[in-house]
Simulated assay, not measured.
Amino acid sequence: MHGDDQVGEGVPAELAVFLRGAVDGRPVTIASSVCAGCGGRAFCVLVNSSGAERECSGCGSRAFIADSEEYWNEESWEDDEPCAAGCPCGSEEFEAAVAFSLGDDGSVRWVTVGMRCTKDGFCGIYADWKIDYGPTDHLLTMV
């Protein structure tokens, strides 16, 4: 882990380490996905190269990760239609966390979505995209 990293409550340790290893050398803030409706931490997730949308396995509530909703439309999908994330074991249910890579000024520069399979613990990076606008503080709460 980088000395300036911040890992939020509830992020599985192996997923935090995996995310840290998958991003560049910049400091990161890692936050766990938690359903606002029921507090659940298991999700089915649709992903493409420009975003991710999660659906709570407990209550079915849906939420976009970071700024995904802005790019979640058929025009943006031309050759990149979202598909269900899947584990090599066949499961489609995950714990999710996001690593926000931070620039020198503390703004979010990159969003990396990591997931840990609830069935076998496999960790993977399922989506990541660059942020090239500001301000970005609102993204840190959209996990």
Rank of each mutant, 00 (worst) to 15 (best):
V45N: 01
E75A: 03
C87Y: 01
E81R: 10
E78R: 05
V23T: 15
A99Y: 03
P12V: 09
A16F: 08
G37I: 09
D79N: 06
P88M: 05
V17H: 09
G39A: 11
F43Y: 15
S91H: 06
C38V: 15
A31H: 10
G25K: 13
V98C: 07
V23Y: 05
W77H: 01
V113A: 09
V113R: 01
R20F: 08
S91K: 09
V47F: 09
E74Q: 02
E81Y: 09
D67L: 02
S49P: 06
F94R: 04
G8R: 03
E14D: 15
V23P: 05
L46P: 01
V11K: 02
A96P: 02
V98M: 02
L15A: 06
A97F: 03
C56G: 03
A66I: 00
I65D: 01
S49A: 12
V7T: 09
A16P: 09
R20T: 14
E95S: 10
V28E: 12
W77F: 07
C35F: 11
W77G: 00
G60A: 10
G86M: 07
S91I: 01
R62P: 01
G10L: 08
S107A: 13
E14W: 06
A36E: 15
E95Y: 01
V34W: 10
T112P: 07
S101P: 07
N73C: 07
G39C: 13
E93R: 14
V108D: 07
V113S: 08
C117E: 13
C38P: 14
V47T: 14
D67W: 03
A63L: 05
R20Y: 11
G51F: 06
A66E: 04
L46M: 15
T29N: 14
R116M: 15
G60V: 03
V111E: 10
G8M: 04
P88L: 06
S61P: 00
V17L: 14
R109Y: 08
A66T: 02
A85P: 00
E55Y: 08
L46H: 07
G114S: 14
V34R: 15
V98P: 00
P12G: 08
F100E: 05
L102P: 02
A97D: 05
A42I: 10
L19Q: 13
A16C: 11
R20L: 12
A63H: 07
V45M: 13
S57A: 13
C89N: 05
A36N: 14
G25S: 15
G114M: 15
G8I: 06
F18P: 10
G51V: 03
V17I: 13
G106F: 12
C44K: 13
M115N: 10
V34A: 11
C35N: 09
A52F: 09
A96K: 00
W77S: 00
D104M: 08
F100W: 07
V45L: 12
A42W: 11
I30A: 12
E69D: 02
S68Q: 01
L15T: 05
P27I: 14
T112K: 11
R41S: 13
P27M: 14
P82G: 05
G90A: 05
E95N: 06
G106R: 14
C89E: 09
V108P: 02
C83Q: 04
A66N: 03
G8L: 05
A84D: 04
N73A: 04
G51H: 01
T29W: 12
Y71H: 06
P12D: 08
W72T: 01
S57L: 12
E75V: 04
A52T: 11
